[in-house]
Simulated scan of single mutants.
Amino acid sequence: MAKRLLRSRERLSLKFGQASFELLGDFLINFNQKNKENLDSLSKCCGSFKLKPLLDCIFLICQELKLDPAVGYHATELLQRFMVKHLSDLLVTPETSAAAASEPRNLEDSIFDQLKEKFPLIVFSCVQLANKMSLNHHMIDTGTAVSFLHLLGLSVSKKTILESELMVFKGLEFKLIYPNPLTSVETLLEVLGHNDPSVPVKRLYHLCRHVLQFITLQKAAIYDSLLKVTTQRASPSKEQREKFVTVTEDCMLLGVGVIAVAVFILYIRKWEQVIGELSHITGISVKSISDFAHVTLAHIVGFLCPAE
């Protein structure tokens, strides 16, 4: 148990390219298991708190505080899970139940009133928790947090910040380790580099970060296009869209897709070789990886060269 805990902390603190192959293998197996568990237990609200405006906000907070982008991806996962749980809890409290009994609209108003004031602080608390979990030396103390939030127009005290962080921590049932797409990309790249040393993974790594951020911020449009390609229908049915939700939350598919796009851009001659190896590592079909990459590349081209 202690050995496993030590290994987990070691992996979190390692920089890209520093992990041993044995450690990578263990981590990949564990990540794949967690990813599958996540896909098997998706809620009807999955993705509701991963919309572009919220993601922009989280990434900007990380940028302003000079935090690693990995913190932003982790914070997004924490926010999604906490808010679904928090909203579920609010729906069964006596106050909201009474509002629902009198008029459904009152329930919505009551919940909105409870959340609108503290939601910005909840977002910041998720960033703080994610940063602490990263074992990064650049920690944000409560004094710095107060000053930063004041600049954003939020008048809060150190006590309020700590209480919000504790509320989120408890709401997540003290579980803070969840699959996130950047972890998937980094792990798969390192495994790819070990399996095929001819692939320049260190150069790919920097491009992969930009590709991942693009996909994350353009997620709705990219996955809508992928759904149409997968179903071969211009207007997929409601049932097809509902079944496709698991694809939109699959960190492993996103990870191989990001790497495939980066390889296509930088080393197209190795395209088929790398796609085959990624398929071998993850069990995801070559066609699925190729479809994801081609759809994403089309959106990148459209973004860089918009039609007049």
Score class of each variant (00 low, 15 high):
I289W: 06
C126A: 04
I61Q: 00
H206L: 11
Y267H: 14
V156N: 02
Q240L: 14
Q218R: 05
R105F: 15
F292V: 01
S20P: 04
R4D: 14
A99E: 07
L14S: 07
L42G: 06
R233C: 13
A220H: 09
L204E: 01
S184D: 06
V146P: 00
C208Y: 08
A101G: 05
S8N: 11
K228H: 05
E190G: 03
I265A: 06
R105V: 15
K85H: 10
E249R: 04
E242G: 02
F82Y: 12
D56N: 13
Q80D: 15
L135E: 08
G72W: 08
P104D: 00
R11S: 08
F16V: 05
S97T: 01
A70Q: 06
V295K: 07
K132Q: 07
R105T: 01
T76M: 12
G17I: 05
D224K: 03
H294P: 09
V127W: 03
L129K: 05
T248S: 04
D109R: 10
L217D: 08
L152F: 09
L188I: 15
I215E: 06
A19M: 02
Q273E: 14
S102F: 12
V256A: 01
L51Q: 13
P94G: 03
I281H: 06
G276D: 09
D291H: 12
L151R: 08
I177Q: 03
N30I: 14
R7C: 13
D89W: 03
E308N: 11
D68V: 10
T248F: 07
S155C: 11
I161N: 04
L254N: 06
H294A: 09
K159M: 12
S43F: 10
L207W: 03
Q80E: 15
F124A: 05
Y178E: 01
L172P: 00
E22F: 15
V247F: 09
T248H: 02
N136Y: 12
A2T: 05
T187N: 08
A99R: 00
L28N: 11
S125F: 10
I289Q: 04
D89H: 07
C57F: 15
L226A: 01
F244P: 03
F49H: 00
S97H: 00
G302P: 00
V263R: 06
A293P: 11
K85I: 13
K287H: 13
I58V: 14
V247M: 11
E186T: 07
L176E: 01
S43M: 11
S125K: 07
Y267W: 09
I300C: 03
T282L: 11
L67C: 13
S285A: 04
F82W: 07
K158Q: 14
G153C: 08
D109C: 09
C305K: 04
E272T: 12
L5C: 10
G302E: 09
V301D: 08
S279V: 09
E173C: 13
V146C: 11
S8D: 08
T230D: 08
N180I: 08
R11C: 15
A260Y: 05
F169C: 09
V123R: 02
L189G: 03
H210T: 05
M167Q: 09
K116G: 05
T183E: 14
Q114M: 15
L304A: 03
